[in-house]
Design a protein around this nucleic acid. Structure first.
Length: 440
RNA sequence: GUGGGCGUAGCUCAGUUGGUUAGAGCAUCAGACUGUGGCUCUGAGGGUCGCGGGUUCGAAUCCCGUCGUCCACCCCA
């Protein structure tokens, strides 16, 4: 060990114990997706650069890992899962709609790492294609509710807005369409930097004081969701598209009420999201106030993306979960990290002397054949060392294989927690261990 | 990409105004202890002090650069 190597900036190694927590969370989320009839699907980890940059937004495009292959083709690592999936749906028009699917994969973004932000991270998406009803949005949010509930988060909040409303606000404020994105970015910060900061943002982005005043008249931050929607209805009364957006929010809240999810939702007219392909409702989910790692999930409707990839016009909506952030939160919570921490195998088979290791190996195999996780010391260590090892690594049971046991065809099964020990035939050992019913 | 804090053993950290051979606790491995773990005791391994350059008789210590890390901006998962 003369030279030390570190992983590239913003990447992490996952040691066994940590990795098992990850696996268990991922499995749990997969289960929920399947519960809703989502099929798994996946695309390549890299795409032609133009596929990735299509309507993704300037900021995110700057974060793409770009490279050329040997033929000079411009490629990029995916920075999210949606582009590949949308391309896939566009080029397979015969898929029966509506269709739901989920995808899990690492994505890469070239940005400065800090808490909850990495250059390589795992994302899990669920998407629905071929249905433009708001029931889709609520179904995705319901998945999120289920996932967060199962993991053990009970303090989360869903922020909801609609791109149609944002666009209408800009129109009604009489601001040039070209400045639309600048306005969005500035408004996005209201919660963080306050009205004064937003005014400064407007000026920095080359807009007038008046533009700021005009826009702020269309931002409502107080009241219940219903009040916010009603009030905005008045402000945008002449804008057909804006009213459409408000109707969509009402529908979402209506469906959400059916499943008692409406209390979690907060209409937030400053929510923007960075990706440019959204066309309708957009949402972000935070644990608590999001102070620890920011949003842990986000998504929205992107009805025009399939068309952009050369497919027939197909409505689409999706949600994306940030697994690193979810796991960071699980691991920083004492109760949850205990719940999801990895377990050693159920049993360590201990041999009294190296000559008996062959017999012990046979016993181990029998336990494994029965579907129970079992282990045997591979280092040929002393009896004493083996039991010490079992204790330190936390095996709940050990089985002793010695001369006497082999002669009697019965083995000492010891519960490491209570210290109790019984001598049993191997079939009985397996029965006993099966009754423990612990996840292997 | 911009600004700031921090890099000493696997981990958490000591290390005096620059001064011989860089320390502790925990962890790891071995032994005390050859058919029963958790305790205790003893010992061992593990560091070109992130890396490179400079100042100096002499650098873990001061200076510059670089890489990594954390934080803020930006943006988000």
């Amino acid at each position: 060990m003369s030279k030390k190597f570190t992983g590239p900036k913003g990447t992490r190694d996952f040691l066994p114990y940590h990795m098992e927590t990850r696996d268990r969370i991922v499995e749990m989320i997969k289960e929920v997706f399947k519960l809703y009839g989502c099929y798994p699907w996946d695309g390549p980890a890299f795409e032609y650069l133009e596929t990735l940059t299509r309507k993704s937004g300037e900021e995110v495009s700057n974060e793409i890992y770009v490279f050329k292959d040997k033929s000079g083709r411009e490629l990029g690592l995916r920075f999210e899962l949606t582009a590949s999936i949308a391309r896939m749906i566009a080029s397979n028009p015969s898929l029966k709609k509506p269709i739901k699917g989920f995808s899990i994969g690492k994505v890469w973004r070239y940005e400065n790492p800090q808490q909850g932000r990495y250059r390589e991270f795992l994302q899990m998406d669920a998407d629905i294609f071929g249905a433009n009803n708001m029931l889709c949005e609520v179904e995705l949010l319901d998945m999120a509710k289920n996932i967060l509930g199962r993991i053990g988060f009970d303090d989360y909040c869903i922020q909801l807005n609609n791109r149609k409303i944002l666009a209408a606000q800009v129109r009604c404020a009489g601001i040039d369409q070209e400045k639309e994105l600048d306005v969005f970015r500035a408004l996005d910060k209201l919660n963080k930097i306050g009205p004064g900061g937003v005014r400064q943002e407007f000026l920095n982005r080359g807009m007038s004081e008046k533009a700021y005043e005009d826009c702020m008249r269309y931002i409502i931050t107080r009241g219940t969701n219903q009040q916010k929607i009603d009030e905005m209805r008045g402000l945008l009364a002449k804008d057909e598209k804006g009213i459409e957006g408000l109707n969509e929010l009402s529908q979402i809240l209506g469906y959400a009420k059916e499943i008692s999810l409406d209390k979690r939702i907060m209409v937030d007219y400053t929510l923007v999201r960075g990706l440019d392909y959204y066309t309708g409702p957009i949402f972000e989910i935070q644990i608590g106030k999001g102070e620890q790692v920011g949003s842990i999930a986000g998504g929205g409707r992107y009805d025009q993306l399939i068309e952009l990839f050369g497919g027939t016009p197909t409505p689409a909506v999706g949600i994306s979960f940030g697994i690193e952030r979810i796991i960071d939160l699980v691991e920083s919570n004492p109760v949850l990290s205990e719940r999801y921490k990895g377990n050693p195998p159920l049993l360590l088979v201990i041999y009294l002397s190296p000559e008996l290791s062959g017999h012990a190996f046979r016993i181990t195999e029998a336990v494994r054949q029965a579907g129970l996780s079992a282990d045997i010391d591979l280092a040929m260590r002393s009896f004493k060392k083996q039991i010490q090892y079992a204790n330190e690594k936390g095996y709940p049971y050990v089985l002793f294989v010695g001369e006497d046991e082999i002669r009697n065809d019965s083995y000492g099964l010891k519960d490491m927690k209570t210290g109790e020990q019984e001598v049993l035939r191997i079939e009985r050992v397996i029965e006993r261990l099966k009754a423990v019913g612990r996840p292997a």
